[in-house]
C-alpha cells in the first residue's frame, strides 16, 4: 500500500475518532464511529488481513453500529439534554490523555524495533481458513470459554432488560 493511502486512512480514522466524542448529537457520534471503523478496516486490508478487515466492516460498522443507531433513535436522545462538563474535569481529562501520549511517544522513541519493516508475505495467506483452523484446534479451550461468556452475557441482557410487569 502506498504510504500516501496509509496516512490518508490513518488520519481519517483519527479525525472521525475524535469526532465521536466531540459531536453533540449522538447520531452523528455513531456515524462518525462507522467511518472510523471503515478506515480501520482499510488499514487491515492493506496488511493483507482481509478477513479481519471484512469482519470489521460486517460486524462492527454493520451490525453493531446499526444496532447502536436503532437504540439511540428509540431512546430519542436530544442533543440539548447533555449536561455541560465542568472545565476542571475537561482540563484534567485532556491532561491525562496528553501525559499518556507523551509516555507513549517516549516508549516508542526508546524502541527501535518498532521501526523495523516486516518482510512482505510470500504467498497469499488463506486467512479465513487459518483463523478457523487455529480457533478450533490450538485455541479450542479459550473458544469454548467465549461460548460460556456469551451465554452469561445473554442471560444478563434478558435479566436486565426484562419489562416491568406492573
Amino acid at each position: 500500500m502506498p504510504p500516501l493511502l496509509f496516512w490518508t486512512f490513518a488520519a481519517l480514522m483519527l479525525i472521525f475518532g475524535i469526532s465521536v466524542i466531540a459531536q453533540p448529537n449522538p447520531v452523528s457520534s455513531a456515524l462518525s464511529l462507522v467511518v472510523s471503523f471503515i478506515a480501520l478496516a482499510v488499514l487491515f486490508v492493506s496488511l493483507d488481513a482481509f478477513f479481519i478487515g471484512i469482519i470489521q466492516i460486517l460486524v462492527y460498522a454493520g451490525a453493531v453500529m446499526v444496532l447502536f443507531l436503532f437504540i439511540i433513535m428509540l431512546l430519542d436522545l436530544r442533543s440539548g439534554q447533555r449536561k455541560k462538563a465542568h472545565a476542571v474535569t475537561v482540563a484534567g481529562g485532556i491532561l491525562i490523555a496528553l501525559i499518556f501520549v507523551a509516555e507513549l511517544g517516549q516508549v516508542l522513541h526508546a524502541f527501535p524495533e518498532g521501526n523495523r519493516t516486516a518482510p512482505a508475505l510470500g504467498a497469499p495467506v488463506q486467512d479465513v481458513q487459518s483463523v478457523g483452523h487455529v480457533l478450533f484446534t490450538s485455541y479450542n479451550l479459550p473458544f469454548q470459554i467465549v461460548a460460556v461468556l456469551i451465554l452469561v452475557a445473554t442471560i444478563g441482557v434478558v435479566v436486565l432488560s426484562k419489562k416491568e410487569l406492573d
Binding site: P142, I145, V146, L149, V152, I155, G156, L160
Partner: peptide, 21 residues
C-alpha cells in the same frame, strides 16, 4: 494471555449483571 483475558472477561461480565441485578 488469551486464556487469562477470556476467563477474566467471563468473570467481569457476569459481575456487571450481578451487581446491577
Amino acid at each position: 494471555f488469551v486464556m487469562i483475558f477470556v476467563s477474566l472477561e467471563l468473570v467481569t461480565i457476569s459481575f456487571y449483571v450481578l451487581v446491577s441485578y
